[in-house]
Design a protein around this nucleic acid. Structure first.
Lengths: 384, 384
DNA sequence: TTGTATGCGTTATCAA
DNA sequence: TTGATAACGCATACAA
């Protein structure tokens, strides 16, 4: 990749020359894109560079007269400030780095919209990257963002047990806000849904309806195939949900609740397998929780293909209020995660830190209430 | 907004001071974040700044020995290159600007994933912005990106009739690739779906099944309420589809096909209204095309609420193969727009231009075949 | 209120 | 192969 990058850089120079060839008249024998600078404006307005810079940058003072002269000259010449140079001399950029698992996932893209709107309102811009929920890629992306000297970062860390790269960023002065996940010992604010409460709410609801054997299905994979220690889960959102799920299951009299946690479900195939396992489970599983909307959709389709009816055969709940959950018949009950607000909050929080807020680290927990829809029914009607 | 921004900048300084206070030891009485530079590395490696820069920047030549010395020193000090400074002196950045209508829309977020993956492979980074399909915001975003000195831009222009801001960018040396929409006279490559072909394919399919009165529903609004001239549509994707729709309808003997184009459908309410209008239409409308997946979902829900059954009462086709179209019963027929590939192609194209490719402007048309699913049925079965 | 001179962290040009 | 030095475009301390 390094080689490819260099190749590009070299060929960029060819382009620059090419450009000059076409744009005759305004250019000298320079090989670089030549744009209007404060110096040009200053010359045209017959003032010093410093004066021009002051009015163009909007910081110092200037008389009405010179202000107008400079503004006019800038207008005429089509001056556009160079943020690079500005950042260079001020030491700060208006860039915010964002690292999400997958921008294509509505959970994240909606959050990014929230981040984006909040950033925009503050005059900040976003560099968005995907970690692909891969630690190595996350490290690389954080490194890239640091090199770009972002003013701060919002990250959904893939594994809260390994955040040295984030620690490095923070200790070198770049504030970080984690999103959907919280890493202990990391001096970073976090914005997460109240996953434990949501899981508990869902479980209570199901238990009240008479369900006992409830399955939890997640994309996260654990070491050794079977989960022995919750700390093996690097995504705290999932960890907290499972913890609450286990507690609730035990409360309902389940002996081995861990046996009802199905993991590593990625893609349609594994969904098929898990669905088969769930349907074959003894004693019969009468309700299923899907850990996110992608898994939810896969499971739903796989269940449907096998002729399962909701909620008479099975009650079904998915995390995230995705579009697809509202067009099924019956509609799917969901845990509503307002990720747009997650994003907004995270950005506001980060702006605070960038602005110098050095108060105690805050771990913001946002309510994610269950929306009960038709996919949930009483256990009595289940056909077993 | 300007004032807010300044406020932030000022307070950032406070933060810097604050930071220095905590991180005692490595810092001097400077108020700026002080990081390791080539000069520091050079000093540690006992070579000149130029030499250190050459090996760290990977451009000049250096003996094995000094190369090792510099690399080692850099490693030890934790040197991280400053891309700002690099861009400053080279005149080029590794940043690509992206302007989409709404990152939250899967059509765009999937495309952004494609753009992102392609950019990543080339060592480029993305600044992503939303135009909100608003021309004024689009102009602002383009201005922002220009100030950041992006190496190129990928834009889904809100109105192809007003692209002076894009022209300005291009003529000042920043290559632009338009996405989903093509503006005539703009010296920019474009990547679009073959909307006309898709519309034609869908219409032929429906006509073959005996449908005659087919409705087209779009979010785009036209001046004066009723569409008199196709050029009034600023989004070419929509324009081309409607053009093909009209042609096909005429071919099928429809007298006033324009009367079957329903516009300005945004949000659930207007969807309800349009659905009412469609159901009340005389002669009866037996098939509906939704211009995108958001409208599609809104229409679907509104139809369902009114007890409409697919395909016996109505045949239904939506643009974009969204998640929701695969969980309904029956599944929804769609025009499959592989926007991930759109994005990839656009990025590859842009990289070419950045690399100096000055060949003729290319308008790439990507096939968007219909995927026929259960929501389409023969007209014979329609209850009228 | 305005101007002069210097610095930010790189790359790039010449000599040596 | 290396080193001294001048850009790049802006901000800023200080002088006028």
């Amino acid at each position: 990749m390094r080689i490819l990058f260099l190749n590009i850089l070299i060929r960029v120079n060819h382009f620059a020359k090419e450009f000059v060839k076409r744009d005759i008249g305004t250019v000298k024998m320079s090989s670089k894109k030549t744009s209007i600078t404060v110096a040009d404006v200053a010359r045209a307005a017959k003032v010093s560079k410093a004066t021009a810079a002051r009015v163009l940058g909007g910081y110092g003072v200037a008389s009405e007269k010179t202000r107008n002269a400079v503004t006019e000259a800038a207008e005429k010449l089509g001056y556009r400030s160079n943020e690079l140079a500005r950042s260079m001399s001020t030491g700060r950029t208006g860039l915010i780095g964002v690292v999400v698992g997958d921008i294509e996932n509505a959970f994240f893209s909606r959050a990014v919209r929230g981040i984006s709107d909040a950033a925009n309102a503050a005059g900040l811009n976003l560099i968005i990257t995907n970690s692909n929920e891969d630690l190595e890629q996350e490290r690389e992306m954080v490194a890239v963002l640091m090199r770009q000297r972002v003013a701060g970062m919002i990250v959904a860390p893939t594994d809260v047990r390994d955040t040295v790269h984030l620690e490095a960023a923070i200790s070198s002065g770049t504030p970080v806000v984690t999103f959907d996940r919280v890493a202990d010992h990391l001096v970073a604010d976090s914005v997460c849904g109240d996953d434990a409460a949501a899981a508990d709410q869902v479980m209570r609801h199901l238990h009240d309806l008479g369900h006992q054997n409830v399955a939890y299905v997640t994309a996260a994979g654990f070491q050794g195939g079977r989960l022995s220690d919750l700390d093996e889960i690097g995504i705290t959102a999932v960890r907290n949900r499972i913890a609450a799920f286990l507690t609730a299951s035990e409360r309902a009299g389940i002996e081995d609740p861990m046996g009802l946690v199905f993991q590593n479900v990625i893609g349609e195939e594994s969904a098929q397998d898990i669905v088969a396992a769930i349907l074959a489970h003894e004693p019969a599983i009468t309700a299923v929780l899907a850990s996110d909307s992608l898994i939810g959709a896969s499971l739903y389709k796989a269940f449907k293909e096998r002729g399962v009816r909701f909620p008479s055969d099975l009650s079904f709940v998915s995390w995230f209020d995705a579009d697809w959950t509202k067009v099924t018949a019956p509609q799917i009950s969901v845990v509503d995660q307002p990720t747009y607000e997650f994003g907004q909050k995270a950005m506001q929080c980060l702006i605070g830190r960038i602005n110098g807020d050095s108060s105690k680290i805050e771990h913001i927990l946002i309510p994610t209430p269950m929306i009960a829809r038709g996919s949930i029914g009483p256990r009595e009607t289940c056909g077993d």
